[in-house]
Amino acid sequence: MKTWAAHLAVLALLLAAGFLLSPYHMTNLARILVLATFAMGYNLAFGYTGLLSLGHALFFAAGMYAAGLPIWHAGLAALPALGLGLAGGAFAALAVGVLALRTAGVSFMIVTLMFAQAGYLTLLYFNATTGGDEGFALPATGRRLFGADLSTDVPRFLAAWAIFAVTFLATLALVRSRFGRVMVALRENEDRARMLGINPFTTKLGVLTLSGAASGLAGAAYAILFGYAGASFATIQYSILPMLYVLLGGAGTVAGPLLGAILMFMLIEAATEVTSAWMFLVGAALVILVLFAPKGILGALRTRLRGLP
């Protein structure tokens, strides 16, 4: 009960923060919430189940294009497009998972990386349909939700917050369920979990599909809320980003991805006022995290404060 209250308080705080901030920062917060949704999806696979993937950009982009292409070509509305994005991400993850989950560890990383790279190149190859490298802007008709125009600040923020909130609470419910404990058991000791009668393959496939669904939802939301889809969202950089957020905030914690996304965003924002070398910052953050704080901020806190989910 206490845990639920704490997480609901986080959501309320985010909602209040959005309205207290300036319109510019409100839009930034909307962006952070969408990226944090993506990172929560990543966290299900990496943080809770120990599946270190380098291919989540594929799931993000699958959602983005599954939503964006019908809007662009067929004039679909935003709400069914979000559904398509979720399904697109889940399907991409299921298809990759069936093959990639036959491997583990380093091989799994490389296989997911290669599938994501093939997906990115495929987007470039069919540039007549996908817009290729330049991408496309989404028409205004596909950016209306319940009568509100998502290209204006307040509806955009509310939509981002709602999508984040649903994923956030769903993640919390999932990891506190029996299935969630099975996920952690697989991460901690796969052989022992197998002896207890758990089928590692189907469990991991289920997790990866859920993870892909959240990533696809985030990709679709990103395209619809910010009005642009492009192949650059399928590059390896967008596989690294959620990993960085999760590592920073704390792998295997529900609020970790959000914390990581906010902190990294603020760090880059602060750094760009001094220097344009933000890539250096991302790189240095990765190295420092893996060297000195492999459990992230909330992970380090959890070892002190027991009972953080």
């Binding site: 380098l54 380093v106 690294i240 070398a277 890539m279 790189g283 240095a284 190295v287 893996v290």
Partner: peptide
Amino acid sequence: PEATIVATIGLLYMLQQ
């Protein structure tokens, strides 16, 4: 193995920048 991959990704960004 897994930590070094993350670390060399960081190295990649730093060298590129």
